[in-house]
Design a protein around this nucleic acid. Structure first.
Lengths: 252, 252
DNA sequence: GCTCTCTATTTGTGATCACAATTACGTACG
DNA sequence: CGTACGTAATTGTGATCACAAATAGAGAGC
């Protein structure tokens, strides 16, 4: 198999040794893979192998197996009938439905979160949003994706909902690799968001406006990438690989 | 540990050897556990063990491990920090949020499905709903839960959405054990649903009314069990077990 | 009766092995 | 130059083993 590897996590300002220092190898692997998926570092369609990931992460294939199995349950990773492990390619139908689901779930989570968003949290959101502007003008796609995720989930986490949060995370896991593909292709120049409207509404304590800003943030993103998707599907059909392809690596 | 086992699947008219004859042990285990969860056959809070489940299902602990890990990723099963495997107990907050998420996701899935619901499908839905009435008047809780699941998912499957369907399945997996607890406690006598309104709307091809009927079916269920939940939480606090408890078994 | 303590048992985790299925790739043929 | 084929290497699956951590349950003390 032509196996894919993942680019190291130690990019610009390496993440501070992963959030919690879980003793579990499995949880470390899961965290590494989830982050790689959210950021879109793993290219959809290219196969990964248990042993390959295990070697890269310095563990035995066993914890990787369990981590992959967990991600597969969330549909973040596809395991074909023959056992081939890939990040799923999304067709336009799926993309529409994911954005549809996001537009249902995330405004509600935001509304639930609003009462728990204090001034300090607002300041942090503002900081993140400022950094997003920088990353956009720099054209730094990866940094943008990290920050955009941070912005949204800084909100959703305040919902304190272990029902909505997992559902939303699950959808982002599936969407990340695709977003990365789009941004890597069409760039982030024309990208607009509704973060500032959201922050204004949040500052006013206006739950309805807050939720609506989040909904628009998602829906307009949908329109923006609509054409890119159509183009991508005709211009970049599932590559019929014939040779091994050098690919980025992942580490914990 | 006082370990829980699961009641055999071979109840009245045993399921015809599970849907697909997957060669995978893991998939068989997963199917068995998912069904047990949906029907609510596994009592929340009581620990299960990998080796115990493996013995009951006639496989090695390995496929059970992966199946459990997958279900844990969907939050259908909880694995504590110490590794204890249980079906999560739901507090009132979670229950409300689950019903909230259902009321968001399921009407949309129903609307997506409506164009794909033909006359034959409608007839089948009608048949299921008739059987539901029978099971309700019989007070057969388990059969009601199987049928109610069948009714809803016969609809949602027609959405042909592998975005909405997994999200909804995930929520049902979490909700099943709780529903069973409620029905087992307060009975199914006062139970009302909006299946017939849904079928009428579907027959008319009225997507909005169809979705609304589904939403009401969920929301009114919410009210119905509201008090039961409150009572349950004070009358049935998390039992501080001190001895082993005999519990039902599960088989493939 | 209740709580605490201590020990034997159980449990999840991770590693390694064997194996059937699948895939990759050089080779022959068109 | 492209396609079909056959063999060798790779891959996921399942089983088994070792081990540290956690638990259960009996016993001592209050």
């Amino acid at each position: 198999m032509s196996e894919q590897t993942l680019s190291t996590l130690s990019g610009p300002q390496a993440s501070p040794q992963d959030l919690s220092v879980r003793s579990n190898a499995r949880d470390r692997v899961t965290s590494a893979l989830r982050e790689a998926l959210i950021i879109g570092r793993i290219q959809p369609g290219l196969p990964m192998t248990l042993r390959g990931l295990a070697d890269q992460l310095g563990v035995s294939p066993m914890p990787v197996r369990e981590a992959i199995r967990g991600l597969a349950a969330e549909r973040a990773i596809d395991i074909s009938a023959s056992g081939r492990i890939t990040v799923p390619r999304l067709d336009q139908k799926r993309i529409t439905e994911i954005l549809d689901a996001r537009a249902l779930l995330e405004p509600r989570a935001a509304a639930l979160a609003l009462p728990n968003i204090d001034r300090e949290c607002l300041r942090q959101l503002k900081r993140i949003d400022d950094e997003i502007d920088v990353s956009l003008s720099d054209g730094n796609v990866e940094r943008y994706m990290v920050l955009n995720h941070a912005f949204h989930f800084a909100i959703y986490e305040r919902s304190l909902s272990d029902v909505f949060l997992p559902l939303i995370e699950s959808v982002w896991l599936r969407f990340g690799p695709f977003m990365r593909m789009v941004y890597g292709r069409v760039g982030t120049t024309g990208l607009v968001d509704h973060h500032k409207q959201a922050l204004e509404a949040a500052a006013r304590g206006d739950a309805a406006a807050f939720a609506e800003a989040i909904r628009l943030d998602i829906s307009e993103g949908m329109e923006l990438i609509g054409d890119a998707v159509r183009d991508a599907e005709v211009q970049h059909p599932p590559p019929r690989r014939r040779r091994k392809i050098a690919a980025p690596k992942v580490t914990i």
